[in-house]
Lab assay of single mutants.
Amino acid sequence: KKSYVLIKVKNPKTKETHTIVVPEENLEEVLKALASQPNVKVVDIERFP
Rank of each mutant, 00 (worst) to 15 (best):
K32I: 07
V42W: 02
V21D: 01
I45W: 09
H18K: 09
P23Y: 13
T19H: 08
Q37I: 10
S3W: 15
D44I: 11
F48T: 06
T19A: 06
V40S: 06
V43Y: 06
V9C: 07
K32S: 07
L31Q: 01
I7F: 01
S3V: 14
L27Y: 04
E29G: 07
E24K: 05
E46P: 02
K10R: 14
K10L: 14
S36W: 07
V30A: 06
K32M: 11
A35R: 14
E28H: 11
S3I: 12
K41F: 12
E24Q: 06
L27N: 00
V42I: 11
F48R: 05
V5F: 15
V43H: 03
K32Q: 08
A35Q: 09
E46D: 07
K41E: 13
K10M: 13
P12L: 15
P49I: 10
N26C: 12
E28L: 12
V42L: 04
V22C: 07
V30K: 03
Q37K: 11
T19D: 05
V21P: 02
T14N: 05
S36F: 09
E29F: 13
A33I: 13
V5Q: 01
K2E: 07
F48K: 05
I20Q: 02
S36I: 08
V22G: 00
K15A: 07
L31H: 01
E29H: 08
P38H: 08
V42F: 03
E46A: 13
A33K: 10
V42N: 01
H18A: 07
V21W: 14
I45G: 01
T19L: 10
V22P: 00
K41C: 14
E28M: 11
T14S: 06
K8D: 01
K13Y: 14
E46F: 15
P49K: 07
K2T: 08
V40E: 03
T14V: 02
H18G: 05
A35G: 06
L34M: 04
V5M: 06
V5Y: 15
V43T: 06
Q37M: 12
K15P: 03
K41L: 14
Q37A: 06
E28S: 08
T19F: 15
L27F: 05
E25N: 05
F48N: 06
P23M: 11
T14A: 03
T14P: 00
K32V: 05
E25S: 07
V9E: 00
E24A: 08
T19E: 06
K32H: 07
V5I: 05
K1S: 11
K1A: 11
F48I: 13
E29R: 14
P49H: 11
